[in-house]
Simulated scan of single mutants.
Amino acid sequence: MHSSVVTHTVQIEESLPEILMRVVSELHDVAYLIERIEPFLTNANGVDFMDAADRMMVLQGIDLAVQKTRGLAEFIDTVTASIPEETLIDITTALNLVKLADMQRALSGGTRRGHSQPIIKTAGDCDLF
């Protein structure tokens, strides 16, 4: 993950539904990344790093985070369907607040249903931040 801030001086208006669908895609990515944590906690391979009650609370929290993230994505997706494509907004300031460069690119006009985070990586790949 790279941390950089894009500073645009030119303000470009974009279709609000298009922008919101990019946010939906990012939310689905977040839910997927959170879900990938769960197997590591359920199968601790004999390592008792937390007791059963604590582990259950963490797992329930992860499940809730995934459900909330997907719920937000579905909510935005559904609301977006009722917004006219001609509705334009400037997202320059909002983009400048996003700290992850990959997410910033995805939100600024990347593929509509693309992913800012690579879902499949080669073993040994590591992003340092």
Rank of each mutant, 00 (worst) to 15 (best):
residue 74 E to A: 08
residue 9 T to W: 08
residue 116 S to W: 09
residue 25 S to M: 05
residue 69 T to N: 01
residue 28 H to D: 15
residue 40 F to L: 08
residue 85 E to I: 07
residue 38 E to V: 12
residue 5 V to C: 09
residue 87 T to S: 06
residue 101 A to N: 13
residue 63 D to Q: 07
residue 79 V to D: 11
residue 77 D to Y: 07
residue 96 N to F: 05
residue 29 D to T: 07
residue 111 T to Y: 00
residue 23 V to Y: 03
residue 99 K to Y: 10
residue 92 T to P: 06
residue 14 E to I: 00
residue 53 A to D: 08
residue 128 L to A: 12
residue 110 G to N: 03
residue 63 D to P: 04
residue 27 L to I: 09
residue 39 P to A: 02
residue 14 E to F: 00
residue 24 V to Q: 10
residue 65 A to K: 01
residue 58 V to K: 02
residue 64 L to R: 08
residue 27 L to V: 02
residue 4 S to N: 01
residue 47 V to Y: 01
residue 52 A to V: 10
residue 112 R to M: 01
residue 67 Q to Y: 07
residue 123 A to V: 05
residue 11 Q to P: 09
residue 8 H to F: 10
residue 67 Q to P: 03
residue 71 G to N: 02
residue 15 S to K: 01
residue 102 D to A: 09
residue 103 M to W: 01
residue 78 T to C: 03
residue 113 R to T: 12
residue 92 T to V: 06
residue 93 T to G: 01
residue 68 K to T: 11
residue 69 T to S: 12
residue 24 V to N: 03
residue 8 H to I: 07
residue 129 F to K: 06
residue 27 L to Q: 14
residue 103 M to D: 04
residue 54 D to W: 13
residue 82 S to M: 02
residue 25 S to R: 00
residue 83 I to A: 11
residue 129 F to D: 14
residue 72 L to Q: 11
residue 97 L to S: 08
residue 64 L to T: 13
residue 29 D to S: 12
residue 91 I to E: 02
residue 61 G to V: 02
residue 45 N to W: 14
residue 21 M to F: 08
residue 41 L to A: 07
residue 95 L to T: 08
residue 121 K to M: 04
residue 110 G to C: 01
residue 28 H to Q: 15
residue 61 G to F: 07
residue 10 V to T: 00
residue 43 N to F: 04
residue 37 I to C: 07
residue 6 V to Y: 10
residue 28 H to N: 15
residue 95 L to I: 05
residue 101 A to R: 15
residue 47 V to P: 01
residue 34 I to K: 14
residue 3 S to Q: 11
residue 120 I to L: 11
residue 81 A to C: 12
residue 106 A to D: 08
residue 23 V to R: 04
residue 56 M to V: 09
residue 44 A to V: 06
residue 52 A to M: 06
residue 19 I to A: 15
residue 89 I to K: 15
residue 31 A to G: 13
residue 129 F to W: 12
residue 40 F to Q: 12
residue 48 D to I: 04
residue 20 L to D: 11
residue 109 G to L: 09
residue 92 T to F: 14
